[in-house]
Computed example of a mutant assay.
Amino acid sequence: MTEIPGVILAGGLARRMGGGDKPMRTIAGKTILERVITRLGAQCDGLILNANGDPARFAQFGLPVIADSVSDFPGPLAGILAGLDWMAINRPDTNWMLSTAGDCPFLPRDLVVRLDQERRRQNAELAVAVSDGQTHPVVGLWNVRLREDLRQALVVEGIRKIDRWTSRYPIVAVSWPTEPFDPFFNANTVEDIAEADRLAALDSP
């Protein structure tokens, strides 16, 4: 376990699956969110969930549920800012925060330590995960001191794309192999859920 806490962006809507909270879909007998929490719980110094609406729907997980800290800015940057704001208030000694999507059930078990090692090695302000040449901008490490810069970008500049904002800072990309499967596989469709059931059998403990 690292000293880095994490925020799980858990408010994704399963529009392509008929609606509802996507992280609450079940894979091989466990919700996607349960799998994410289990995977990160061994790596992070505490977890929080970011989701708008009634927080009671996540009560079973026993984690703080925080809404976006700026209104009318849907999207992952608003959730990341909410996490940074929460850390600044509730964990004032925390300098770094992990963020990840709530619909990635097979996250790497060395996610946090590798991101942290590489950002230290390259003295970067941010670190982001990559697999098969594709960047996963929601999955990364964030310097808490950048939260006011991010607020300015969201509220004043109207920036929504993560990589448009992160390109302003020294950032390191950390790559993971995709065998036996892509650890950043995310479930967006009914077909993805079926594929995730198959992959769960390959996911060694």
Rank of each mutant, 00 (worst) to 15 (best):
Q122W: 07
V139H: 06
V113P: 07
H136S: 05
W165E: 12
V128M: 12
R39V: 12
L98R: 00
I89V: 13
L40E: 05
E3S: 04
K30E: 09
I193T: 15
R160P: 09
M97Q: 01
I159P: 10
T26I: 15
L115C: 06
W165F: 13
N186I: 15
N90D: 04
G18F: 09
P74V: 11
D103Y: 04
R15M: 12
A200N: 05
A173R: 11
G75M: 02
D149R: 05
N50T: 14
G11I: 14
A10S: 10
P177D: 13
N143I: 14
Y169R: 01
Q43W: 13
Y169T: 08
G18D: 11
L111S: 09
F184S: 07
E195C: 04
L146M: 12
N50E: 12
G79C: 03
G83E: 10
D197F: 02
I32L: 13
S71I: 14
E195K: 06
P5S: 12
P64S: 03
T38E: 15
L150T: 02
L47K: 00
P183T: 08
D103G: 02
D116I: 12
A201W: 08
A14Y: 02
L111R: 07
W96M: 00
C104D: 15
G75S: 06
P205R: 00
A28K: 09
L77E: 07
L154P: 02
A173N: 14
E3V: 07
A10W: 07
L13T: 15
P64F: 04
A10T: 10
V138N: 08
R151P: 14
A88I: 11
P23D: 04
V130C: 05
T135C: 14
N50S: 10
M24L: 05
Q134H: 14
P64Y: 01
L33R: 08
G20R: 00
R147G: 13
V172L: 12
G29N: 11
I27M: 02
N188C: 15
Q122E: 14
Q60D: 09
L33K: 03
Y169L: 08
D85A: 08
I159R: 10
A124H: 06
S99E: 08
R198G: 11
I159S: 13
D103H: 04
L141K: 05
L202S: 01
W176K: 02
V70R: 01
E179F: 00
R121I: 13
M1E: 12
I37D: 09
A101L: 05
D21V: 08
V36F: 02
L81F: 09
R121C: 00
L111K: 03
R151W: 11
R147H: 15
